[in-house]
Amino acid sequence: MDDLLVVKDLTKNFGGLAAVSEVSFEVRRGEILGLIGPNGAGKTTLFNLISGLLASDRGSIKLEGEDLTKKPPYKRSAMGVGRTFQVVRPFDMTVLENVMVPTFAHYKTSKEAKEKAFEILKMVRMDKLADKMPANLTLAQRKRIEVARALATKPKLLLLDEVLAGLNPTEVAENLPLIRQVRDSGVTILFIEHLMDAMMAISERVLVMDQGVLIACGTPDEVTSDRCVITAYLGEEAPGC
């Protein structure tokens, strides 16, 4: 199958802590790939390495065969890597303006950027809130701004960092189809999620991280029956893991 992203031996240490250690995997074009793991496993750090906000100590990241490892974040974005932040980081401007910011990469005039941003807001069903300030919105709505902004960069690969975390079940049920809808529009998705049910419902393959190491990779069923994964989640020691 066609690999969109290939990550090889990616490593990042914070002082003595190996936050990401020798991680290798690939993301296939058009798939929804889940990434799970206990808190502090290094998932967000992995996203920071792929999006370029952190420089890796070792290893390589390739998108469509092109090496991203040394490129600044804005170039990676232009090449097709989009991301959201686990802790939402809306800019201090209206919802529409928030989405306009990245839209300028593709549309030069603010009129075009505004129209395009509005289209994206419609897609994530936030168009009615276009003139609101993010500070006055619910967490679920602010997470949608994150997604809308990332989509405005026209990513080939979208990294979603816990876009469902902190939402109530109704909101999860509303936001979940959005992820599939985005994939169906041609965007490959790598997403971090804590909610196992949600994860299992929409991902075709799942990566599991623990303490900076990739410990399993497979279909949701394979992964959930993996002894090492169960151990990582239950916190017990198991020989050979």
């Binding site: 974040p73 804005y74 974005s77 910011v101 990469a105 950027a113 405005a152």
Partner: peptide
């Protein structure tokens, strides 16, 4: 302020890293 430069500057003022991740050469 109402052109792309203005939006990019305002985004950078609010959150430099988020702006960079969204493709802006801050």
């Amino acid at each position: 302020r109402s052109s792309s430069l203005g939006y990019h500057l305002r985004a950078a003022a609010a959150d430099e890293d988020a702006a960079r991740a969204l493709g802006i050469n801050t």
